[in-house]
Design a protein around this nucleic acid. Structure first.
Lengths: 360, 360
DNA sequence: AAATAACTTTTACGCGCGTCAAGAAATTGT
DNA sequence: ACAATTTCTTGACGCGCGTAAAAGTTATTT
């Protein structure tokens, strides 16, 4: 028996040894991949900018050594980072969590790094977040402002320095674009539906809603009722802040016991108020629905993720999450690519879709 | 009449002029404040580390020029950043949004910069987030893993490199500490309550729950029922993923129509399943509650932010959000300060609090 | 008042990478 | 095969700040 190929002298192969060591910087990695550092740097900025054969060699080395450029050094030397700020007024609201998630995903697909922030309902936090964002030198920002409570000056100052697309909640004249829903349209179709299938609705809202959409919806309600020749009634309940369900429930209990309603139908300014109001109706022993056995019809607005599971399930107008998210990201991307700021602000309003469930 | 102090000659004061210019770096700011750059650097790392008079001069300049150190340069040169990663499995779940918010706040108070990430229910996203976090060189991480679906190897590898406190969902032996709730205790008090005030519960859960807490709760249920001398019944409904309400509703409709229950009381593995189940009961015309007129009692677990507003309001066991958040942050801070990793992993379990509402 | 301690300034290097310029090498066109 | 073009390499500078050493200054102690 012959023993052949008993192993090479000189220890383990060089590459296998090095694979265990940590690659500390691009210099080392470039040496390992057999490519010069400036070319490797070029590759990481845009893989398509180097020759095919070069790219393959870099990617082979990449698979072997798991090197990643130091993000701090990269961002320090780039004039513009690949960061995209996403800020919502209240992340504990699943509506915002959901839309933020869609936006996040789209940003990643576009090759950017999303940074998610929430103002947690507090104007000071919103301002602080903007300041922190600024120091991250983001390529752009998607911002759903708090609204009424926002520090307009702070937002303006921010927008002057960073390409910004507002969404959900508009602040007139601020930012490079706005993407949101068409409140007049959505309120219209809801009121048409409600009047067609029963009585015209009263409008249920907070006295000091944090979000400007509430005002737009109130105006849309008044206009639609006038056009249809019905007398409007607005139930302004005391309450501020972001605890909408709580306000809807607490004040709903009061309103329902006082029998102040002109009709049997209530249109809430948003789903979260409606969820509270539904709970109040249940607690009060009032059957909600559109059947003859029901005392009350309740409708919401937004198609909140939980409104399918209320009792009864909530009739509402769905916001077009997907379109809002993708148009927002799209708009921001073209802002970033163009490198310039548009002279005139674009506003994109998306139509709502009526969702008829069992509450109205 | 005498005119005195008619103003100094020489134009606008030097400081007022400079205040308009942008301070580009620490060098410039140091010059403006009249302090050397290394001392200014020391100040930003720890304001208490410089003399009182020096601090005042820096802060005076700070008020005038609004300089902030370049965060990328700072983090490149510091061995450890002031970043704290916070990662949850599913941010669209208000439970996680809520606890993440508390953790965020505590981190900021401790002088750190929280970075919030969500796995969005996807193991690949969880792994990607860990990789991204790693490249941010965080001082520490608070991680609520996906659980069953998590890539254990990836998490272990991550924890080996970064001080990590797990919360909510445990992965045995991974990370430097775990903070969560005491499932045996919480299930115990719930079962005691339910049996004391009515019939012993059946246990309602998903066949393949994403979260290990479900398993702990099932075991606790079995043990408690055995101890009390009741026959356990577990309703395992098909379903995976994070759409708990949907599963609770869909499968609840089926289960309730099949009349397979041994008792009139259902204990759900968590509130979100219970919310779906409540909707199913409503839809099925079954009155839920503890009164004589009710056909069914339903209890949940977690005290989800919305469970106050279900119809009827949900009886549940409240997780101690505050304690979990603060103990988690506290533990992480001491890990960071000590600079060393503990030999033995600490586990902190907090007791649940029974919340009796109207559903059971 | 002198001695000591505590702090600040000066000077300088390094972090990891973007980017530029000049020249070398590889690829393409004809 | 040669010129034209594209791509890569070499060498170097700069970004803004942390940090270290040595020398200078100020505050505290006895």
């Amino acid at each position: 028996m012959e023993i052949t190929g008993a192993g090479r002298a000189g220890g383990a192969p060089r590459e296998a040894r090095l694979a265990d060591e940590k690659v500390r910087n691009m210099e080392q990695f470039a040496a390992l991949s057999g490519i010069s550092r400036p070319t490797v740097s070029k590759y990481f900025n845009d893989p398509a900018s180097v020759r095919d054969s070069t790219r393959q060699r870099i990617e082979a080395a990449l698979a072997q050594y798991e090197y990643r450029p130091n993000i701090y050094a990269v961002n320090q030397n780039r004039q513009l980072t690949k960061n995209i700020g996403i800020m919502v007024p209240f992340l504990a609201d699943p509506f915002f969590a959901e839309i933020a998630r869609k936006i996040e995903t789209l940003c990643i697909e576009a090759g950017f790094r999303p940074i998610l922030l929430s103002a947690h309902g507090a104007p000071e936090q919103e301002v602080e977040n903007l300041e922190n964002l600024l120091s991250l030198r983001p390529a752009g920002v998607l911002l759903a402002p708090l609204g009424r409570a926002s520090d307009r000056g702070a937002i303006e100052k921010f927008c002057a320095q960073v390409p910004t697309v507002l969404f959900d909640s508009n602040v007139d004249g601020v930012g490079d674009a706005f993407v949101g829903m068409d409140n007049p349209q959505s309120i219209d179709i809801m009121i048409k539906y409600l009047t067609d299938t029963g009585e015209p609705p009263v409008f249920f809202e907070m006295q000091t809603p944090p979000n400007p959409n509430a005002n737009k919806r109130r105006h849309a309600y008044l206009r639609a009722m006038e056009q249809l020749g019905y007398e409007p009634q607005i139930i302004h309940v005391p309450g501020a802040g972001w605890e909408f369900e709580d306000i809807g429930f607490r004040e709903g209990m009061r309103v329902l016991s006082e029998h102040r309603l002109m009709t049997n139908t209530i249109l809430c300014s948003n789903d979260r108020l409606a969820i509270g109001l539904l709970a109040a109706a249940y607690e009060s022993g009032l059957r909600v629905g559109r059947g003859t056995g029901s005392a009350l019809r309740i409708a919401g607005h937004d198609d909140h993720p939980f409104s399918r599971f209320t009792c009864p399930s909530l009739t509402t107008v769905a916001q077009d999450y997907d379109s809002i998210a993708s148009k927002g990201v799209e708009t921001l991307m073209s802002l970033i690519e163009s490198g310039s700021r548009p002279a005139n602000r674009e506003d994109w309003l998306f139509a709502g879709r009526l969702i008829t469930r069992n509450s109205a």
